[in-house]
Design a protein around this nucleic acid. Structure first.
Length: 932
RNA sequence: GGGCGCAUAGCUCAGCUGGUUCAGAGCAUCUGCCUUACAAGCAGAGGGUCCGCGGUUCGAAUCCGUGUGCGCCCA
């Protein structure tokens, strides 16, 4: 049998993934074992795998695979998010291509198209996660808009309404005039843009020759003005407060008021108050009991309230009103101005602040709960510093009520019904004081009467009771047209994926989940809200079976993946390498290696993909992924080496026994670090530790020590089977330890190392734990390694081939003798230093160069002329270094404050440093004398 | 305007409770090797005012203050 000199991910990855799935290793059912649960942050159902997904799913996979190997019942629940805005936009686009306009088809038909589309293209990303090696429990795949999860959304909506935490109200919202829907704050993208500041004069009612000048960016909204505000302490306007001015062009009188909101330094120091079209103005208006005049339509045109320019688009109106104001003599000046303007993420339309009827969730109590959950330590953040941001965001002053309604169809329809005129017959004839809204809905106390219910039947029953009319039919009611915000379904994810609102068997076992892995950018939108929902419902759902209200015990925040200009990688910017191409180029293991090594928890990651200098596009290349690929190859070749060995019954040589003991210790040392680093989620450090021990300790040192030599006929000597077995054992443990990080290559090597019985797979092997470490042994071998390095260095600097065998003499010193008393150590140095002889000496033998390793001196015989001057220079240089070193330590030790203040251990360490340094100086000086 | 964070080798970053892990890792660079597992490799080497300034301390990359530069969030 022969193995290729290169490891081929393509030949192994799909095969092993299929095998794992066939064996159903990723599926979890509740049992006696301790659960270890992760719920995936559900990617958009329409999404494709990008760098952020790769990072955060690789981390989740590492954690879940390790837990599985530790014998826990590991359950990683995958799924997708219906992403209402993004998906609806895609479906609308698709229909448009087919010549269908959203407005022309009924809601049901649109949803049918959307679901068809989702069935056809949705969930591609889940298959891409399989490519990455994600060991999700695919049988548990969920979708935020499937029936059970939608029922959960409706249930909590009704529940919150009953609890008085939901309300409907007219509020200032971000309005997209093109999509004609309200937008959440995160869907508004602010950009710095050039604008103009118009200085407009409003004349006094009593004295048309006098007036006040205000500055505004939006002259087209002056018709909606309800007041002019000045700062209460601004002297130059004191005399005007309380007087009336006329809105230019329409000559409508409005008052001048004083409010400390006004920035005295900005513009003229006087501000027009337009409550319908500005959030801050609305607040000022409310403070002063001013009316709201809305002059815009839902698509951003001026309405009849404007009196002039009716029907014009807001931007056209701005141009036209400029001329009108100029002609009327009210335009004082126009200056250029730079300002930040909000655009719709989807349509790019300039977002219009607009008063609309929306559903809100009161956040007060929720925010306090979410804050306390983390403050108390019930939910732990990694890195801890994320607490600062979390704390800041959840401060009472910063939390605004959550607008949960969206004017879309793709999502859970709001379970609220309104009563139509038909329910009460002719309004005039029935009861005198009945009022109806513009849309024909029954009003009560000036607002539309709302009935919130889990289903139509219940809504109807409630309506019958409320109106005291048993003849009502469902046709007399009208359901709210809007759907809830997508986050209003995903905040239930850790409960809903276990159908927790309907049954508790799974929830009881898996909740609270262990860890959530997600980007810090959705800390508020998702993480905090999941904590809120967990504390709100888990107790009533689980009762005595509750193991904790928190949805997860720990949160690992990943950073954003950025390009080398620190810009977030995104499809739009075109600065992101193609995730699947990267996997194609380096293998999933290589890419996972690259992702994990590129950064640590919480810190943003600068991904090293290079840019093509000619085309300026990002290349699907990465040095770190290449390193990962090379690592696979390295391990693959170690496998090839070992598999090529013949075995013999010969006794184990001392050198090999030492090497085996050493690599076991060394690996145990690494495993101890692995364990420590896992508890604090320092996954990059874990991987680097394993990388170094496998590459440097195992391949470069251990295997070179035990590697059998060659006979003259070119055949390899056999290896004693004790060493062989030990080597296979340690290699296999290394593969197990590395498996969570690089699952494919480790599984492949696992099977190449031995013939395995059915079911003996690396993916379910037990995760190795650290054993006791013989520190003395490690220290002695480290000294030998240092000596070997010095020998190689001498060779390299003198141009002597590593192939040439040399003699080495160790100076007769107790410490040298003690070191070489370790069985096999001399043999190890002989082999690794390619020495023909190693013996002790009192005198410096002729024709040798001296080496200093630690405080032991050695003489390496070289069959060349020694350049005395060069030697002297080399030794002098080294001596100078130690002189400085010793001087600094002496200075420290002679400082009484140091000796008095520092702990004994530190002082002892300094004394040892001093003694060693002095000893080295003595040896070096002696060497100089010998050189003459 | 309010807040959060970052600055350590050419690059990307570790450095956790101040002291042998104290100036580190990987990549890149340089030198020499196609040595019978691996050139996707082996052996060796060089490289730093720990952003500036001030302070606390016996001792500061680490703690405090301040300045500068950069990133982000909210308004």
């Amino acid at each position: 049998m022969s193995l290729s000199t290169r490891y081929s991910p393509k030949e192994t990855e799909d095969r092993w993934y299929a095998h794992w799935e066939a064996k159903n290793y990723f599926h979890s059912e509740p049992d006696e074992r301790e659960p270890f649960t992760i719920v995936i942050p559900p990617p958009n159902v329409t999404g494709v795998l990008h760098m952020g997904h790769m990072l955060n799913n690789t981390i989740q996979d590492v954690l879940i695979r390790r837990a599985r190997m530790q014998g826990k019942n590991a359950c990683w629940v995958p799924g997708t998010d219906h992403a209402s805005i993004a998906t609806e936009a895609k479906v609308v686009q698709l229909l448009r291509k087919q010549g269908i306009k959203k407005g022309d088809i009924p809601r049901d038909e649109f949803l049918k198209h959307a679901f068809d589309w989702k069935e056809k293209y949705g969930g591609i990303i889940l298959d891409q996660l399989k490519k990455l090696g994600a060991s999700c429990d695919w049988q548990r795949t969920r979708f935020t808009m499937e029936d059970s999860l939608s029922r959960a959304v409706i249930h909590v909506f009704v529940d919150l309404y009953k609890k008085g935490k939901l309300y409907r109200g007219l509020r200032m919202t971000n309005w997209d005039p093109e999509a004609k829907t309200v937008l959440s704050n995160e869907e508004v993208i602010h950009r710095e843009e050039n604008s103009q500041l118009f200085h407009i004069k409003y004349n006094l009612v009593d004295d048309p020759t006098d007036g006040i000048i205000i500055a505004t960016q939006r002259p087209e909204t002056i018709m909606a003005d309800v007041a002019i505000a000045v700062h209460p302490e601004e002297e130059k306007y004191q005399h005007l407060v309380g007087k009336m001015v006329l809105i230019p062009l329409i000559n409508k009188p409005i008052p001048i008021i004083a409010d400390s909101y006004v920035d005295r330094e900005f513009g003229s120091g006087a501000l027009k108050i337009t409550p319908a079209h500005d959030q801050n103005d609305l607040q000022v208006g409310e403070r002063h009991g001013l009316p709201v005049v809305d002059i815009l339509t839902e698509d951003g045109k001026l309405n009849a309230e404007a009196q002039i320019l009716v029907g014009e688009d807001r931007f056209v109106a701005r141009k036209k009103i400029r001329k009108l104001l100029e002609d009327a003599g009210n335009l004082v000046k126009v200056e250029d101005y730079r300002t930040s303007i909000g655009h719709s993420e989807r349509t790019d339309a300039v977002v219009e602040p607009r008063l609309t009827n929306q559903w809100f969730l009161k956040m007060g109590g929720f925010a306090a709960t979410a804050l306390e959950a983390v403050k108390s330590g019930e939910v732990k953040f990694y890195p801890e510093s994320m607490w600062n941001m979390y704390y800041q965001w959840l401060q009472e002053d910063n939390v605004r009520d959550w607008c949960i309604s969206r004017q879309l169809w793709w999502g859970q329809r709001i379970p609220a019904w309104y009563v139509l005129k038909s329910a009460v017959g002719s309004p005039q004839s029935a009861v005198g004081d009945l009022q109806f809204s513009e849309s024909g809905r029954l009003m009560k106390n000036g607002e539309e009467l709302v009935i919130v219910a889990e289903n139509e039947a219940d809504a109807l029953a409630q309506a019958k009771a409320k109106l005291n009319n048993n003849n009502l039919t469902i046709n007399d009611l009208e359901q709210d047209e809007d759907v809830v915000d997508t986050w209003f379904s995903s905040w239930l994810w850790p409960i809903a994926v276990f159908d927790g609102f309907e049954k508790k068997d799974d929830l009881k076992y898996y909740y609270p989940t262990n860890v959530l892995v997600t980007g810090w950018d959705i800390m508020f939108f998702w993480v905090a809200r999941m904590i809120m929902s967990g504390y709100e419902w888990s107790e009533e759902l689980l009762g005595d079976d509750l193991k904790g209200k928190m949805p997860f015990h720990e949160v690992y925040f990943t950073g954003m993946v950025r390009d080398n200009k620190k810009r977030k990688m995104s499809k739009q910017l075109g600065n992101s390498p193609d995730a699947l191409e990267l996997i194609e180029n380096y293998g999933a293991d290589g890419v996972r290696f690259g992702m994990l090594l590129s950064g640590s928890a919480g810190n943003d990651i600068i991904f090293d993909a290079p840019i093509d200098p000619v085309t300026k596009t990002v290349l699907n290349e990465s040095k770190l992924c290449e390193q990962g690929r090379n690592f696979c190859n390295k391990m693959w070749n170690a496998l090839r080496l070992i598999k090529g060995w013949e075995r013999s019954d010969a006794e184990q040589p001392e050198v090999n026994a030492l090497a085996v003991a050493w690599i076991k210790d060394k690996f145990d040392q690494t495993l101890a670090e692995v364990e420590a680093n896992f508890t604090t989620y320092r996954l990059g450090d874990v991987l680097m530790g394993l990388y170094q021990t496998i590459w440097d300790d195992f391949c470069s040192f251990y295997l070179e020590i035990i590697k059998p030599s060659f006979n003259e006929d070119g055949t390899s000597e056999p290896i004693d089977h004790q060493t062989y077995e030990a080597t296979i054992n340690i290699f296999e443990k290394m593969m197990a330890a590395l498996h969570p990080f690089m699952p494919f290559v480790t599984e492949e090597i696992w099977h190449q190392l031995r013939n395995r019985r059915e079911g003996n797979d690396c993916v379910v092997a037990s995760y190795p734990t650290a054993g006791r470490v013989d520190k003395d042994l490690i220290q002695k071998v480290d000294k030998a390694k240092d000596l070997i390095t010095k020998i190689r260095e001498s060779r390299s600097s003198k141009g002597i081939s590593p192939k040439e065998s040399l003699r080495l003499f160790a100076q007769n010193l107790p410490s040298s003798h003690s070191m070489f008393e370790l069985m096999g150590l001399a043999g190890l140095v002989l082999k690794m230093g390619n020495l023909s002889e190693l013996s002790f000496t009192d005198e410096e033998p002729a024709g040798t160069v001296s080496l200093l390793s630690g405080t032991e001196k050695y003489f390496l015989e070289m069959n060349i002329m020694i350049d005395v001057a060069a030697e002297r220079e080399r030794i002098t240089k080294e001596l100078d270094y130690y002189r400085g070193f010793v001087a600094s330590v002496e200075k420290k030790l002679s400082n009484e404050k140091f000796v008095g203040g520092a702990p004994a251990a530190v002082i002892d360490a300094e004394r040892k440093k001093l003694a060693d340094g002095q000893e080295k100086m003595r040896i070096l000086e002696e060497g100089l004398v010998k050189l003459g």
